[in-house]
Amino acid sequence: MLILTCPVCGVTAEETEFHGGGEAHLTRHGPGSSDDEFQSYLFMRENPRGVHFERWRHVYGCGKWFHAARCTTTLEVFGTYPAQTTEPPKDLRKTISQKRPGWTWRDLT
């Protein structure tokens, strides 16, 4: 079970108080984009063993969206950060590097 801390209201709770929102930091390709871009936006997702970035919503609490970085094999949560960003914050990536040296996710390391 994941123990997540909502960065909006500061509450730490287990995952049943939240709702997963799928992969984080997707670029939405809509009208005017190429077929390839649209196809990959719709269907192509990461399926990592290890470090993963996801969107979560504090559905039974403050109702706000946020991001979480976690490990898919151990369910360790490296950290959570606000939804209003397009990439994970530097200090969080540093923390992950200390715990999982050599991790990669898309083009992030």
Partner: peptide, 10 residues
């Protein structure tokens, strides 16, 4: 003050 889940409801 805490908003949470009570069994299946908020």
């Amino acid at each position: 003050f805490r908003r949470t889940r009570m069994a299946q409801v908020p």
